Every structure is written in C-alpha cells, then in structure tokens.
Computed example of a mutant assay.
Amino acid sequence: MIHALSDVQSRSVGARTTVWQFVVILADAVIGKDCNICSHCFIENDVVVGDRVTVKSGVQLWDGVRLEDDVFVGPNATFTNDRMPRSRQHLERFPQTLVRRGASIGGGATILPGLEIGERAMVGAGAVVTRDVPARAIVVGSPARVIGYVDDAVS
C-alpha cells in the first residue's frame, strides 16, 4: 500500500510494503518486501532497504545507507553521509553506512557516515554512534559505548 499523499518515484518497492503519507522515495532507491515506511520519511537515491524493515516517522535515509533484512529504525533517528559537510560542495561518492540484519536503532539516535552496525545490535535512544558497533552489542550514550550484548535467551 502506497498512500496517496506520498511521493514514490522508485519502481523498486517490494510486495506488501506499506508507505505512509508524506513519504518521499527517490527513483533509484530499492525497498524490500514487507516493509513499513512510516509518515514523514525521506529516502534518497543510493539507498537499499532489505525485507521486513521498519522505518519509523521522521527518518531520512541519505545516499550510501544500506539497511539489511529485519532492521528497525526508531523515530527521528538521524543518518549522516558526509563527515565534513559544506554548502554546495558535494562528494562524488558517499561513504556506505551498513546496518546489518536484525539490528535496532532507537529513536533520536545519530549514526555518523561510513559505519557498520553489527547483526542484531541495539543502539539506544539518543545515542551518538561514532564508530562501528559489534554484532549483538548494546550501545548507549554520546559517544555510544558498549554496555552489554544481546542475550539469545532474551531476544
């Protein structure tokens, strides 16, 4: 379902994906199946979103962002794609930010460009991620620090 008040230019949106109102998805973005893209999101061209991904309201996915299957991105999480941004100066190629399968990013977290969030990792709400996050790690704070690991028995 693509809401009538969204602007979906991409022809690569998977089956059973829901795109809510006031979402913009540019032409070259690739969105998997069974995703939920909530209202007020923006997805740029060089973005790949896997299957069964949830992107909550207020998230922008800029060029270079890759979300693998089963990723959760909380409301107003921020991805960046240029470590030294300047007005009217654009990179030829943006660094790739990779969020691995099953990872979760809490609301309001900030992810700096070119990082990898490991498989099933959890980024706490409001965390500022300045370096790679290991698989299954739980990170919180600014800058984000590992405080533990996801336990298979609990998750």
Rank of each mutant, 00 (worst) to 15 (best):
H3E: 11
W20P: 00
V48T: 04
L112D: 06
S12L: 10
R136W: 10
L26K: 15
T130W: 02
P75A: 14
V123N: 04
S87K: 14
P143V: 05
K33Q: 15
E68A: 14
G108M: 10
V19E: 04
V146M: 03
I2A: 05
T18Q: 15
A135K: 08
V133K: 00
V154N: 08
K56A: 13
I2V: 08
R66I: 00
A127Q: 07
I37N: 12
R120I: 01
R88Q: 14
G118N: 12
G64E: 05
G126I: 12
I138D: 02
F72M: 05
Q89F: 15
R100V: 01
G50N: 03
Q9D: 04
P95Y: 11
E44P: 03
V133F: 05
G106R: 07
V24H: 14
R11M: 10
R131D: 09
I43T: 02
M122Q: 15
I105A: 08
P85F: 07
N36A: 13
I111H: 08
R93M: 15
V53N: 07
G32C: 07
H40V: 06
P113M: 08
I105W: 09
I25Y: 10
I111K: 05
R93G: 15
V48I: 03
W20Y: 13
I2E: 11
N81R: 08
V133T: 01
L26Y: 14
